[in-house]
Amino acid sequence: MAGKGKVINFAELSQHSTSQDCWLLIDGKVYDVTKFLNDHPGGDDLLLLATGKDATREFEEVGHSSSAKTMLNEFYVGDIDSTTKASDTVAATTTTPNQTEQNHDKKNSELFSMKNLQFLVPILMLGLALGGFYIKTPSP
């Protein structure tokens, strides 16, 4: 595991939150998942929503398999510095922790809406196309 023993603080973690440089914190360990973004079964958006902060809750809620948890080892960078706090990064950003949570909820809501639209729009189009065959035309 490259980076074994490296200690990373929250300020450094928060600097790696783009699709070109994506780090996650899961169970006190930091992972560079940049190269995995395109291969993630849930899509890169889900990983990008969790960057730069503690993503343990999101990771556990999904119910990842043991092989997914083992796969994390190849992306391991180091451990989080437990003497720093996530709130230490707030000074480096313009959002408060409450705003960050609201933004996260908004992004999750938008992602959920987008996935629903990707499913519902084709069904609606199919229904409209098939419905045209069943419309009775008035006879003269």
Rank of each mutant, 00 (worst) to 15 (best):
L25I: 13
E60W: 05
Y76T: 04
K29H: 14
H104N: 03
Y76C: 01
T84A: 07
F133K: 02
T89Y: 04
K136D: 15
R57Y: 12
F133Y: 04
T34M: 05
K85L: 14
F10R: 02
I8H: 02
P138T: 10
L126Y: 10
D21P: 04
A50N: 14
G3M: 03
E58W: 01
D79P: 02
I80P: 00
K29Y: 10
V90D: 03
L117G: 07
F36L: 04
G127E: 12
H64E: 10
L111N: 10
C22A: 15
L120R: 11
F10M: 07
L126V: 15
T100Y: 09
A86G: 12
M125K: 11
K4D: 12
T94Q: 05
K35C: 01
M125P: 01
Y76R: 13
N116R: 08
K107E: 09
S67I: 07
D27A: 14
K6E: 09
D88K: 10
E61H: 15
T94M: 08
K4S: 10
T96R: 07
Q102I: 13
L111Y: 06
L130T: 14
K136R: 14
G28P: 06
A92V: 03
L49P: 02
E60K: 14
H40P: 06
T34R: 02
V121L: 10
L24V: 02
L49H: 09
L13R: 00
G3S: 06
E58V: 03
V7E: 11
E60P: 06
L124R: 09
P122M: 12
N98K: 04
D32L: 01
S19F: 09
F75Q: 00
A2F: 11
S113A: 05
L126P: 11
K35I: 03
Y134V: 11
V30H: 00
D44Q: 15
S109N: 10
I135H: 13
Q15P: 03
T51F: 03
L46P: 01
G42W: 08
P140N: 06
Y31W: 03
V90L: 11
I123G: 05
L49K: 14
V90Y: 11
S66K: 13
L47S: 08
H64G: 14
N38K: 15
W23A: 09
L128G: 09
N108D: 12
A91S: 15
L117W: 08
S17H: 06
A50R: 05
G52P: 05
G132D: 04
Q20D: 12
